[in-house]
Simulated assay, not measured.
Amino acid sequence: MSAPTLAEDLLLLLFQPKSGTIAGENTLFYTLAGAVLADLGLSEHVRTSTGRSGATLVEAVEDNPPTDAVLRSAWDYVLPKPRGVQTVLAAVGPPLRGPLLDRLIERGEIRQVTKKTLGLFDRKVLEDGGTGRRAHLLDDVRRVLVDGAEPEPRVAALGALLSGSGTLPQFDPDIPWSSAVITRAKELEQGNWGAGAAAEAVTRTVTATIINSVITAVPPNPT
């Protein structure tokens, strides 16, 4: 299989092994769509611009289509003309959860098992696949938010999306919910990824613009 997309990694992080649930489920499609757009921005498949009304627009880089099917679907949507970020989030987000979860199950990152309820009714539950990838991703984000390490662009985007989705408090105590963590997370949202990221200034700006559009779209205190 190809390398995981940013949206897959985000969904894996949002999966809570202890409860078998996914954090931020009620607004998940905004967050996953934001990860798809951020992934496209990081790989320079899309760029952003400002429309006449001041709204942020996303437009495809015509000579640089992505090969991944999920990313290509979103890229195809903005190919005919630039579209508002909020419009793109609403259009590409709703169908993402199922295919992305299927990919995680296929990779063995998450297992879907059937259990009996009251000894009678079958229900499907999600369990950690035991690959260690979720723990590795969580450690990468923790080092940036807690230890102040300079992030790779993908890790910066993951931290910013977790913060913007309102789910970061649910990662305590692995990522302590402290004023320092909140401050660093907000810096990631704004594209302040560290001096070493200067070479990716344009990409960082595009990604931060997309992520902040996700934050605008997500209602306060999602559950």
Rank of each mutant, 00 (worst) to 15 (best):
P169Q: 02
A217L: 11
A35R: 11
V218A: 05
S73C: 03
E127C: 00
H45S: 13
L79S: 00
L28I: 13
L104T: 04
T117K: 13
V141H: 05
D68Q: 05
G20V: 09
E187D: 15
S163Y: 11
V36T: 09
A7K: 12
S19V: 10
K115P: 01
I22C: 00
R123E: 10
T114Y: 01
D147K: 08
R123P: 00
L96K: 07
D139G: 09
V202S: 13
L42R: 14
A74E: 04
Y77H: 12
G191R: 06
L120F: 13
V88Q: 03
V181H: 10
V88Y: 03
V206C: 06
S73G: 08
V85S: 10
A69K: 13
V58M: 02
L188N: 06
N221G: 03
A156W: 05
T31H: 07
D139Y: 09
V92R: 14
T207N: 06
I210L: 15
L11M: 08
D9H: 10
L104V: 00
P153L: 04
P169E: 03
L96E: 09
E189T: 15
L120M: 11
T131E: 10
A38P: 08
K124T: 08
T114A: 10
R52V: 07
D68R: 04
P173T: 09
T50P: 00
T50K: 09
D172M: 00
V78P: 02
A198D: 10
P220V: 02
A23I: 08
T207W: 00
I110L: 14
V155H: 08
R103T: 15
P80K: 07
D128H: 07
D122I: 00
Q86T: 14
N212C: 04
G119Y: 09
A35E: 07
V141G: 08
K81N: 01
A91D: 12
I110C: 11
D102K: 14
A198V: 12
D39I: 00
G98W: 09
L28R: 15
D102V: 02
P4D: 12
Q86C: 01
V78D: 05
L137C: 11
D63R: 11
T209C: 01
E62W: 06
T223P: 11
P220R: 06
V144C: 05
A185I: 06
L168V: 04
D172A: 07
L12M: 08
D102E: 14
T114R: 12
V144R: 10
R142E: 08
T114F: 00
A69N: 06
T223R: 12
L71P: 12
L28S: 04
Q170L: 12
P17V: 11
R142M: 01
A74R: 03
R134S: 06
S19M: 09
E44W: 00
R107W: 05
